[in-house]
């Protein structure tokens, strides 16, 4: 048995579902499960903590058992739900199947709880940015907030722009996506107390994630428009 969350469900045959799980010990897995009966319909909804067991070593696993660890009504609602759907789409897009990421699993679980606890704009945006930065670190694409691409320490008084795969490069205050140096040290401390810092963090994570996401944009971004 291990902890897991459903990321996505789609019908497979008349009586079977194809379910993408994010599991604690095996990372992303895709499994075939029986379509639940009337009483268990809530089981395969995303954002609910589950315990599951599966068999098979190929790409497609067979679900042996799957239980909700605690019954909670829709864990996410409204704007938080949009954020949750975004996170799920992001994970499905960038993670390789069957590669374990236990620290990311606990981070994800914490993020879902945080989205549920406080659906304010400030909170949901900080949760998304922290998760994106953690995800980048876990995948080996962590952003270096201490030094610029030439190896110089970041100066809090200067301005920088970010290039995925390269790092921060000093630039003038007026250039398009110039980010103040003191924002970089705040983001490094995950201090998102200011809307302006959140905006800078979004510019950085978007740029850093874009090579991993690929050409097809994430559909869930349309929900926020």
């Amino acid at each position: 048995m291990q902890n897991a969350f459903v990321l996505h469900v789609r019908p497979y045959t008349d009586s079977r579902l194809l379910i993408d799980f994010f599991t604690e010990h095996d990372g992303l897995i895709r499994a075939v499960g029986r379509t639940p009966g009337k009483r268990d319909r809530a089981k395969y909804q995303p954002f609910q903590p589950l315990e599951l067991e599966f068999s098979g070593s190929g790409e497609l696993k067979t679900l042996r058992s799957c239980e909700l660890t605690n019954h909670i009504a829709f864990s996410l609602l409204g704007h938080s739900l949009f954020c949750g759907l975004y996170i799920n789409e992001l994970l499905l897009r960038v993670l390789q199947a069957d590669e374990p990421f236990p620290p990311l699993f606990s981070f994800y679980s914490g993020a879902v709880q945080a989205l549920k606890a406080n659906p304010s704009h400030q909170q949901t945006e900080s949760v998304l940015r922290s998760l994106e930065l953690f995800l980048l670190e876990q995948l080996g694409f962590g952003v270096d907030f201490d030094s610029s691409e030439t190896g110089q320490p970041i100066n809090e008084e200067r301005f920088y722009f970010y290039r995925a795969g390269h790092g921060f490069c000093e630039c003038g205050q007026d250039s398009g996506e110039a980010i103040p140096g003191h924002h970089l040290s705040a983001i490094d401390r995950r201090d998102f107390s200011d809307e302006a810092i959140l905006r800078s963090a979004k510019i950085i994570t978007r740029a850093a994630l874009s090579p991993l996401i690929g050409e097809k944009p994430l559909k869930s971004r349309d929900l926020f428009r």
Binding site: H8, E89, S220, D222, L223
Partner: peptide, 11 residues
């Protein structure tokens, strides 16, 4: 229904 992962957005 809206299901971004299946490519179904508002449009």
């Amino acid at each position: 229904r809206l299901s971004p992962i299946d490519g179904i957005g508002p449009a």
